[in-house]
Design a protein around this nucleic acid. Structure first.
Lengths: 144, 144
DNA sequence: ATAGATGCAAATGGTTTGCAGAGCT
DNA sequence: AGCTCTGCAAACCATTTGCATCTAT
């Protein structure tokens, strides 16, 4: 399987866009990150490696990475869009603790299957879905 | 079952807040609406009935209605938060056409049950969830 | 009487964009 | 050389907030 960098380069070439050091740096920074970073957080990490990079470039690159299907935007209901590498990872949804922000990746074939069936029943061709489960985790409940 | 207006009045009384004509008007306008309105759209409808009402009051009242569990915010992924009356309606999720914006309310017990099970398995006490299915509807596909 | 509500306009805050200079191919 | 990028700062836009004035209770 190709690595994300290759895929990104191919995407850029195909779209007649350029592979710049900033774009490489930004992709590399996301890859090295296990967490789900907001654009702001990512910008901080990127800046630590190259202080000259601008905020706007991070936003613009993030958009490209989403279009290239390498990265997926997440909505943890805290007002910021977060991102995670999706390339090479199986699709999954999230279970989020609304107290501490902890989040767990979940994958449930039963649900995925039902979603398809529901869409079909209504004559829709499903293109994507979002499912977020919000709750309070064990630790936060015990901590009380 | 109490009607929404009563519930709202009780909520306001309990919180030592006041039942003002604006608040009544806004709730009434949402109730009369079958669509999922954005704050902006709601503001327009409200203004048609009383031009003196301000935008901010609509936002503020919407927040109250959500806290009172009468209204639920929706995220159709188009940059605006939409709202619908939830009081007296069974919980449901949405299937949205990303071309024409049409949306269908869905309810699937299988999925609901699995969500609970998943949360439990991870030691979470589920407080809410969001599920949106995005796709393209029959009409929009044929229209092409 | 008085805590709370309203409308207005200004402020926020995440994200986008215009522009002039810089860089990739 | 030419088209794309970048950083900066200004612009956007939905939503929030400060404030002086009004109003429900």
């Amino acid at each position: 399987m190709k690595n994300p960098q290759e895929v990104f380069n191919e995407y850029l070439a195909e779209m007649n866009l350029k592979a710049t050091p900033q774009r490489r740096l930004i992709l590399d920074t996301i890859i090295k990150q296990k967490a789900h970073l907001s654009s702001e957080e990512l910008y901080a990490k990127v800046k630590a490696r190259d202080a000259s990079v601008g905020q706007a470039t991070v936003y613009r690159t993030l958009k490209l990475l989403v279009e290239a299907d390498l990265v997926e935007p997440l909505d943890f209901a805290d007002g910021v869009t977060r991102y995670e590498i999706s390339y090479g990872k199986e699709h999954h949804d999230h279970l989020i603790c609304s107290v501490c922000g902890k989040n767990i990746e979940i994958l449930d074939p039963t649900i995925e299957k039902r979603q398809e069936e529901i869409a079909k029943k209504h004559g829709f061709k499903l293109s994507s879905h979002k499912m977020y489960l919000y709750g309070i985790c064990d630790d936060c409940r015990k901590g009380k």
